[in-house]
Design a protein around this nucleic acid. Structure first.
Length: 827
DNA sequence: CGGCAACTAA
C-alpha cells in the first residue's frame, strides 16, 4: 500500500512536470506504445515490480526518442525503491545514452548494483557520442580490470573511439588483443579494424584484417572498397568491387558511394554512367549520399549536363545537394549559374548554411557583383551567419574584389572570429588595388597579432613589394619565408622571382629560380619577363629554350615575355620567328600585347612602314600601348609626321598624358620645328595638362629617400649638390654634351643645362654615390619615363665612377655599366 | 540489453 501511494504521488508530480511542460512528449495514448496514466497503477506487472516490463517500456522510449517519458519511468523506479535486474538497468542506461544525457547515464551506471560487459559498452558509446573519448578509454580499461568478458562488441566500440581519437598506438595493442582472443574472424570486428586502419592510411593491415574475416558480409566488402577508395587506391577499389559482384553480393548505397569516388579517381566517367544505371535499377537514386557522389563525379569531370540531370532528379529538401552545385559552379567559372541556383534554393525554403553562403559569395567576388553581394550580405545577417569566419571572410573578399576596401575593412574591424584567411583576404585586396603600403602595414599587424602567415600571405606581400619596387622589405620577407620553409612553396618562390626582378635585382631573381626544386609555368614566365624588362633579351630567350626542354607548355604570357625580350633587345628575326612559332607550333592566338611587342620591335629597328602595316592588319583596335610603341620608334628614327599621328592617337585616348607631349615636343625640337614646339606647349596649357611631378627614390639602410626635380629639402643637400658639380665636370671631360631639347622651358642653354642637372634621378644618383660603399650597385626608381638627357648623362657617370647603376622607370629597367645601358638606347 | 561502412568545403 505504501508503495502504491508513493506511486500515485509521483505520478501527479511527473504529470505536472512533464505533461504540462512538454505536452508533445508526454504520455502518448495515440501511439499505443505507452500505457495511459491509470494503467501505471493498475498494471499487475508494474505493481509486482517487474524488471522485464520496465525494460520493454524503456525500449519503446528509445525507439520513439521519448526521453521525457523515459525519465519519468526512471522516477517511478526510484520512488518505489525498486531494484531492476542488470538487463533492465542496461536498457535504462541506453535510454539516457541515446537521449544524449550522459551525466544521467553515468549516475545510473554508478548506482547499478551489478554491471556486465553490456553496461560498459553502452556507457562507452555514450562517452563516444559526447566526444568524451578519454572517459571511454578509461571505462574500457576498467571493464578489463574488473574481469568482464571481452567480446566482439567491446572491440567494435573501442575501435570506433580510437579512430575518433586518432590514437594509433593503442589501436595496435587492441588489435593484438583481438587476435589473441580470435575475434578477428568476426565480421563486425574485422570491419571495424578495416575502418581503423583505413583512417590511418594503412591499407595493407586493413587488407589483412579483411582477409581474416571468415563470413564476409556486405559491410565488410564495402568497408574494404571504401578503404581503397579513401586512400587513393582507386584501381584496387574497383577490382575488389568486381570481385564482390562475382561472389554475388549486391552492392548497396554505401558501396556505390565509394565506387563512384574510385571511378572519379581513375577518371572513368563512362563506367560511372553504367553504374549510375545500376543504382537507378536498385532504386538508390534517391539516397542523398549516392546523389552527392554522383554530383561529385559529374561536376568534377566537367560534365555539367549530367550533373544537372542528377540534380534535377534527386531530393532537394536538404542543403547538401544545393551547396554542392553552388560550390562547384562557383569554382568552375560559372558564377551566374551559382547565383541562380542560390536564388532557387532561397525560394524552396531550404536554409543555406555557411558553405552555401561562402560558395555563392565566392561567385559574387568572381563576378565583382557588388549589388548581389550586398543582397546576400543581408541574407547572411538575417540567418545570423555573419559571425561565421568563413562567411565573413567571403563577404570581405566580395567587397575587396569590388574595390570597396572600406567596407571590407569595416567587416574586418567588426569580426570577432578571425583566422589567417581573414588577414590574407584584406592583404590580397590591397595588393590587387595597388595599395602595397597598406598591404605591408597590415602584414606587420598580422605578425604582431601572432597570426601565422601562410603561403598566400607571403606571395601577396611579395607582390606588394614588387609593385612598390621595395627591395629591402622584399628581402626581409624573403628571409621570413626561409625561416618558415615557405620559400619551398612554388607560388612563394615565383613571387620572390618577380619581386627581385621588379626591384632591380635580376641576379637574386635568377638565384631563387635556380634554387627551386620544382618549377611551374609561372616560374618560367616570371624569369623570362624578368630578364626581358631588364633588357637581357638573350638570357630571356635562353630561359625560354630551357623551358621547352622541360615539357611545360608555354602560354600567352610566356610569349609576351619572349616577344618583349626580342623587342627590348632588337632581335627582329628571332622575334618574327617566335611570333610565327607561337601561332603555328603552340596554337596560341596572338593577343594585343603580342602585337604591341611586334610593333615596338619593328619600329625600334626603323621598319616604321612595316609597323604601320601590322597595326592595320591586326584583328584588334589598337590600344594606347600600341600607339605609344610607334611614337617611341618615331622619336628614335626622327619620323616627325608619323610621330605626330601616333601622338595624336595617344592623346585621343589619354588626353592628360604628359609624357607624350614631352616626346612630341622633343621630336619637333630635334627637327628644329620651333613653332610646333610652341604649339605643343600651348595646347598643353589649354588642356590643363598637369605635369605629374617626377619622383625618384632610392633605399638606403631601411629608409626610402625621395627626390623631386630641384629638390633642396634633403638633409644631405650640400653634399648632393657638391657631388653633382663634380659629376658635371667629370662627364663634360668624358665627352658628355647636354641635350637641352629635353627642357621645354623657354630659357637659355646654360640655364637648361643647370636644370638638367637637378632632375630627380640625378639627385637620387648623387645621394646613392655618397651613401653606398664603392662597388655596390645603386638602385633608383622613377615614377616617369627616364629623361633622354639623364639617360645619356648616367651612361657617362657609370663609366666615370665605375659603378653599376640600375634605374627602373615607368617602362623598364636600365642597367648602366661602363658607359652603356642594357636598353641599347631604345626604350 | 550493446557493436562495423558513405556526402559539399571557403
Amino acid at each position: 500500500m505504501i508503495r502504491s501511494s508513493c506511486c500515485r504521488k509521483l505520478s501527479t508530480q511527473c504529470k505536472t512536470n512533464a505533461w504540462t511542460r512538454f505536452p508533445q512528449h508526454g504520455f502518448s495514448t495515440q501511439s499505443g506504445l505507452f500505457p495511459e496514466e491509470h494503467m501505471i497503477h493498475t498494471s499487475p506487472q508494474i505493481s509486482d515490480f517487474n524488471s522485464h516490463a520496465y525494460a520493454s517500456m524503456l525500449q519503446n522510449c528509445i525507439i520513439n526518442g521519448e526521453s521525457t517519458t523515459g525519465k519519468s519511468l526512471h522516477c517511478h523506479i526510484l520512488k518505489r525503491g525498486g531494484c531492476l535486474d542488470v538487463f533492465a538497468y542496461n536498457v535504462l542506461l541506453n535510454m539516457y545514452v541515446k537521449s544524449d544525457l550522459l551525466s544521467d547515464a553515468h549516475k545510473v551506471f554508478d548506482e547499478m548494483p551489478e554491471r556486465n560487459t553490456v553496461s560498459f559498452v553502452t556507457l562507452i558509446q555514450g562517452c563516444a557520442m559526447a566526444l568524451r573519448f578519454v572517459e571511454g578509454i578509461e571505462l574500457f580499461f576498467r571493464l578489463h580490470r574488473e574481469g568482464h568478458e571481452l567480446n566482439p562488441f567491446v572491440f567494435t566500440t573501442i575501435l570506433k573511439v580510437l579512430v575518433s581519437m586518432e590514437w594509433a598506438e593503442l589501436g595496435w595493442g587492441v588489435h593484438a588483443c583481438i587476435q589473441k582472443l580470435g575475434h578477428g574472424s568476426d565480421a563486425f570486428v574485422g570491419t571495424a579494424l578495416i575502418d581503423a586502419y583505413s583512417a590511418c592510411g594503412l591499407v595493407d593491415p586493413a587488407r589483412e584484417a579483411f582477409n581474416e574475416i571468415i563470413h564476409k558480409d556486405m559491410v565488410s566488402w564495402t568497408g574494404m572498397v571504401t578503404c581503397y577508395a579513401e586512400n587513393g587506391f582507386f584501381e584496387e577499389a574497383l577490382e575488389l568491387f568486381s570481385r564482390m559482384r562475382m561472389v554475388e553480393l549486391k552492392p548497396n548505397n554505401f558501396t556505390l558511394v565509394s565506387v563512384f569516388k574510385a571511378l572519379l579517381g581513375v577518371g572513368a566517367v563512362d563506367v560511372g554512367r553504367s553504374i549510375h544505371a545500376c543504382a537507378l535499377k536498385m532504386r538508390y537514386e534517391m539516397d542523398p549520399y549516392v546523389g552527392a557522389a554522383l554530383l561529385d563525379l559529374y561536376t568534377k569531370t566537367e560534365d555539367i549536363e549530367d550533373a544537372r540531370r542528377v540534380f534535377e532528379e534527386i531530393p532537394k529538401d536538404d542543403v547538401i545537394p544545393w551547396s554542392f552545385m553552388i560550390a562547384r559552379c562557383s569554382q568552375s567559372d560559372r558564377s551566374e549559374e551559382a547565383v541562380e541556383l542560390f536564388c532557387q534554393m532561397w525560394q524552396t525554403l531550404v536554409m543555406p548554411n555557411q558553405f552555401t553562403f561562402a560558395s555563392v559569395l565566392q561567385a559574387c567576388a568572381t563576378m565583382a557583383g557588388l549589388d548581389l553581394g550586398k543582397q546576400i550580405h543581408c541574407h547572411v545577417l538575417k540567418v545570423g551567419l555573419d559571425s561565421n569566419v568563413f562567411v565573413s571572410n567571403a563577404l570581405m573578399d566580395v567587397y575587396a574584389k569590388c574595390g570597396k576596401m572600406e567596407n571590407s575593412v569595416e567587416l574586418f574591424m567588426e569580426s570577432t572570429n578571425r583566422n589567417d584567411v581573414t588577414w590574407n583576404t584584406l592583404i590580397v585586396g590591397y595588393v590587387q588595388l595597388g595599395d602595397g603600403d597598406k598591404a605591408l602595414n597590415l602584414f606587420l599587424d598580422m605578425l604582431g597579432d601572432q597570426v601565422k602567415a601562410t603561403e598566400v600571405t607571403y606571395s601577396s606581400v611579395l607582390r606588394a613589394c614588387a609593385g612598390l619596387a621595395a627591395l629591402e622589405p622584399g628581402t626581409q620577407i624573403h628571409s621570413l619565408t626561409i625561416k618558415t620553409i615557405y620559400d619551398r612553396d612554388i607560388p612563394v618562390a615565383n613571387a620572390l622571382i618577380d619581386m627581385y626582378a621588379k626591384c632591380g635585382s635580376i641576379k637574386e631573381a635568377r638565384l631563387v629560380f635556380n634554387m627551386m626544386s620544382k618549377r611551374d609555368l609561372v616560374s618560367w614566365n616570371a624569369m623570362i619577363s624578368g630578364y626581358s624588362m631588364h633588357g637581357l633579351g638573350v638570357e630571356a630567350l635562353r630561359i625560354f629554350e630551357n623551358m621547352q626542354k622541360t615539357g611545360i607548355r608555354a602560354d600567352k604570357l610566356t610569349f609576351v615575355g619572349v616577344l618583349s625580350a626580342c623587342s627590348n633587345t632588337g632581335l627582329l628575326d628571332k622575334g618574327q620567328a617566335y611570333f610565327n612559332s607561337m601561332v603555328y607550333d603552340h596554337g596560341i592566338d596572338p593577343c594585343i600585347e603580342h602585337y604591341t611587342c611586334m610593333v615596338g620591335l619593328l619600329g625600334r629597328l626603323g621598319h616604321l612602314d612595316r609597323a604601320v602595316n601590322l597595326i592595320e592588319e591586326m584583328p584588334f583596335e589598337p590600344t594606347v600601348m600600341v600607339w605609344r610603341a610607334l611614337l617611341g620608334a618615331c622619336v628614335t628614327h626622327k619620323d616627325v609626321e608619323l610621330g605626330r599621328i601616333s601622338a595624336l592617337r595617344v592623346l585621343e585616348m589619354e588626353p592628360q598624358d604628359e609624357a607624350t607631349y614631352v616626346l612630341l615636343s622633343n621630336m619637333y625640337a630635334t627637327a628644329r620645328r620651333w613653332d610646333n614646339v610652341a604649339s605643343v606647349r600651348k595646347s598643353m596649357k589649354k588642356k590643363g595638362v598637369k605635369k605629374e611631378p617626377g619622383l625618384s627614390w632610392t633605399e638606403n639602410q631601411g629608409t626610402v629617400h625621395y627626390f623631386t626635380v630641384g629638390d633642396a629639402s634633403h638633409p644631405d643637400m650640400r653634399l648632393i649638390y657638391g657631388m653633382l658639380e663634380w659629376l658635371n665636370m667629370k662627364t663634360k671631360k668624358a665627352g658628355y654634351v647636354p641635350n637641352c631639347d629635353a627642357i621645354l622651358l623657354d630659357v637659355d642653354d646654360d640655364e637648361k643645362s643647370r636644370l638638367l642637372w637637378v632632375h630627380s634621378e640625378r639627385l637620387a644618383l648623387a645621394f646613392g654615390l655618397i651613401r653606398t660603399p664603392f662597388g655596390s650597385p645603386i638602385r633608383i626608381m622613377k615614377n616617369l619615363r627616364i629623361c633622354m638627357d639623364c639617360h645619356a648623362a648616367i651612361k657617362c657617370v657609370s663609366k666615370v665612377v665605375q659603378r653599376e647603376i640600375v634605374i627602373r622607370d615607368i617602362n623598364r629597367f636600365h642597367h648602366f655599366q661602363n658607359g652603356t645601358c642594357s636598353c641599347g638606347d631604345y626604350w
